[in-house]
């Protein structure tokens, strides 16, 4: 029997999660554990449901059946007020950054504190400048998202996700649209941030196999199920046919369908 999700257990436990959109069974019994203070990376072919799974973990979608424990709390049946208090625990980095284009970098990063904390203006300013320095964006406070490069937008979004000092960080394809050098830089930043803050991170990624270098655990998702999961070494030595085909396809440079199409197909 797996751990039932007390304070000392895994940060996130998913059991038999199912979700159907129209005729498409997008999540077909997902079971997954994300240990505390580690990076768990979910990989898999496009359309396998990994983005939808992440949207269930951050409570944007509700499952048809199954359970999700976050810090030991079963969250799939909570009311909206209780959900908000669970959300205080996590930071989320969206695929395209989801920065507010009408606000400067400073205001974007400060936004969660301005809206949801009782800190004074000076305290907020100090927190924002510190986190911007940590993600390598000092001096960029007054810029607007449209003036930033893709990598800088990701860094800003990461800073915003971290500003409330969450214990869980969720990342949805954090390196989409970046060149290989910037991809590595963002990976390193995610790793160092996770270690510095002692975060439990869940990441959906298509950067296979590069992302394995910074992952503690890997889960391979296929057709709505987690088919292989474990430490990087365990997964790499797996004999699962689908996983081997996926890895081989990756190595051969198979094109990834942009995952916005997946989101559009499943709708809201």
């Amino acid at each position: 029997m797996t751990h039932n999700g007390t304070k000392d257990g895994p940060a996130i436990i998913v059991r038999e999660l199912r979700r159907r959109f129209g005729k498409q069974q997008v999540l077909d019994g997902v079971t997954l554990e994300c240990p505390r203070n580690q990076i768990t990376t979910i990989v898999g072919p496009s359309g396998c449901g990994k983005t939808v799974l992440l949207k269930h973990l951050n409570l944007l979608l509700r499952p048809d059946s199954g359970q999700i424990f976050i810090d030991g709390i079963e969250v799939t049946r909570l009311n909206s007020r209780a959900i908000d208090s669970v959300r205080e625990k996590f930071g989320m980095l969206f695929q395209a950054g989801a920065l507010f284009d009408s606000m400067s970098v400073f205001d974007n990063v400060a936004f969660p504190l301005v809206e949801k904390s009782n800190l004074t203006r000076d305290e907020i300013r100090a927190r924002v400048l510190e986190i911007l320095r940590q993600v390598g964006l000092e001096g960029m406070e007054e810029k607007y998202p449209s003036e930033l490069s893709g990598g800088m937008q990701k860094r800003t979004a990461l800073a915003r996700a971290l500003i409330r000092r969450p214990s869980i960080l969720m990342l949805d394809e954090p390196t989409t649209g970046l060149d290989p050098t910037r991809t590595t830089a963002i990976h390193q930043l995610v790793r160092s941030t996770q270690q510095r803050f002692g975060l439990s991170a869940v990441m959906v990624s298509h950067d296979v196999p590069q992302v394995f270098a910074i992952s503690d655990r890997v889960a391979f998702m296929h057709a709505g199920k987690i088919e292989v999961s474990g430490t990087v070494d365990e997964v790499m030595s797996s004999e699962n046919e689908n996983f081997k085909r996926f890895l081989a396809g990756r190595a051969a440079g198979e094109e990834e369908r942009p995952s916005s199409q997946v989101v559009a197909t499943v709708g809201r």
Partner: peptide, 13 residues
């Protein structure tokens, strides 16, 4: 389209 509304929701706003 750019998930800014989802971002607000996830920030508990």
């Amino acid at each position: 389209a750019t998930e800014q509304i989802d971002a607000l929701t996830v920030m508990a706003i």
